[in-house]
Simulated scan of single mutants.
Amino acid sequence: MPTAGGVNIYRVEAIHSPTGSKMDLTDLHDFAIQARMAFIVGVETFDRVFAGIRFAEIDGSLLYVYARDEPTAAEIEDNYALHIAIVASQIVGREIDVVVVLPKVLQ
């Protein structure tokens, strides 16, 4: 696995809850997922679609994401959920099967 100065550059170690089912993502997790998604979709799409996004928490195999509004949440869920699930699984080291994208007003 590639490293930079001995540090794994592809995975951020996750801190899990004692029950192992629910986990609040840290800012580092959030920013790492955002960076990887920006690389995948490109800067113009990222700035248009992912501006203001928050990758918030994992509950079981569900990842909860907050987008700026309802139309953006629907677009992300419809078009990018699979990419997000793969990226988030790699970064947090847990299997993500479902990505639930909600508007921030419901946060």
Rank of each mutant, 00 (worst) to 15 (best):
T72Q: 05
A38I: 00
F46I: 05
A32K: 13
F50I: 06
H29S: 04
S21T: 13
V101A: 08
I33R: 05
V100L: 12
V99N: 04
A32N: 05
T45H: 02
V87N: 01
L106I: 09
G52L: 02
R54D: 13
V98K: 10
L62H: 12
S17E: 07
S89G: 07
H16G: 01
R11H: 15
M37A: 03
V92C: 14
E77Y: 01
D78T: 12
E75D: 11
A73M: 07
A88I: 02
D24K: 14
F31C: 01
L63C: 06
Y66L: 14
A4R: 09
L28F: 07
S17N: 13
D27V: 13
S61K: 09
H29T: 05
V87H: 01
A4N: 08
G52I: 08
L106K: 15
T45F: 00
E70G: 07
P103T: 12
Y80T: 06
I76D: 07
P18I: 10
A35E: 14
R11M: 13
Y64F: 15
G6F: 06
I53D: 04
V105A: 12
G5R: 10
H29L: 05
V43T: 14
I53T: 08
E77S: 15
A81H: 06
Y80N: 05
V65M: 06
Q107V: 12
N79I: 01
D47Y: 05
K22P: 00
Y10W: 11
G93E: 06
G42W: 04
M23I: 03
D97Q: 12
V105M: 11
E77G: 14
K104L: 11
D47W: 00
G60A: 08
V43K: 14
A38T: 04
K104I: 14
D27H: 11
A4K: 09
L28E: 15
G20A: 06
D69L: 08
Q34A: 10
V7Y: 09
G5M: 05
A14D: 07
D97M: 09
Q90I: 03
M1L: 10
A35Q: 11
S61L: 00
P18G: 06
M23N: 02
T26C: 10
R94T: 08
S61P: 01
L106S: 13
I15Y: 03
I76K: 02
V43Q: 14
A35P: 00
V92K: 00
F39W: 00
A4I: 15
D97I: 02
E95R: 13
L82I: 02
I53W: 02
A74D: 14
R68M: 11
V92T: 11
Q107F: 15
I53C: 07
Q107P: 00
D69V: 06
V87P: 06
E44Q: 11
A38W: 01
